[in-house]
Structures are given as structure tokens and as C-alpha cells.
């Protein structure tokens, strides 16, 4: 079963937690690993993501978050 989801580029995250706070579905958590630029970065955990995009808009990094939305018609890939 496939759903909408997001990806977070580990090394572009500064661990500010704004996406964690913004996600209405509680799909994002801060992990314990430290990335190349020295921050504990955010991780996506599938918990019913509906690709609302709020994490994308509150994230201050241009390319850290990418949002994928499930197409209503086609079958999930």
C-alpha cells in the first residue's frame, strides 16, 4: 500500500523542529543521528501523510523537504 509521503534530505536539515510542530499528522520526528553540518535532523515516519505541504512551507531550507502526493486516480507505485 502506498500513500503520500515526504522526503527529508538529511544533510540539509538544521533540526529546527518547525516541521515537527507543523505536521498535523505527527509524521515527522527528530532523530538521534547527527548529520554532516552538525544537527540532529528530522525523519519522516509514515503516519497518514496527506501531502498538505505545511512542513515544506515552514521549513527554512530551500531543498530539505520534498512532498509527494498520491494520485487519486492511478494505482500507487
Amino acid at each position: 500500500m502506498s500513500e503520500s509521503y515526504i522526503t527529508i534530505n538529511d544533510d540539509e536539515c538544521k533540526g529546527c523542529r518547525l516541521c515537527v510542530d507543523a505536521c498535523p499528522k505527527k509524521c515527522i520526528v527528530i532523530g538521534s543521528n547527527i548529520n554532516l553540518i552538525g544537527y540532529q535532523y528530522a525523519r519522516f515516519e509514515q503516519n497518514g501523510c496527506n501531502a498538505c505541504g505545511l512542513c515544506y512551507y515552514v521549513c527554512p531550507e530551500p531543498g530539505a523537504v520534498t512532498v509527494y502526493k498520491k494520485d487519486k486516480k492511478g494505482s500507487p507505485q
Binding site: D11, G53, Y56, P62, T66, K69, G74
Partner: peptide, 29 residues
Amino acid sequence: MVKVKHAKPESFYKVYERKLTTKKVTHYC
């Protein structure tokens, strides 16, 4: 099918030449 709904806008450079560690993040805090 899944489609990209939000991604890094095209009007940003792919890499940012100023940063040495990773050329993908801004200098902002």
C-alpha cells in the same frame, strides 16, 4: 502514482557555491 507536490523551486541554484561543507544549505541559522 505519486507526484511531486512541493520541491525545491527551480529559481534556486542547485548548489550554493559559498558553503564548503555541503553546497545545499543556506547560511541562515
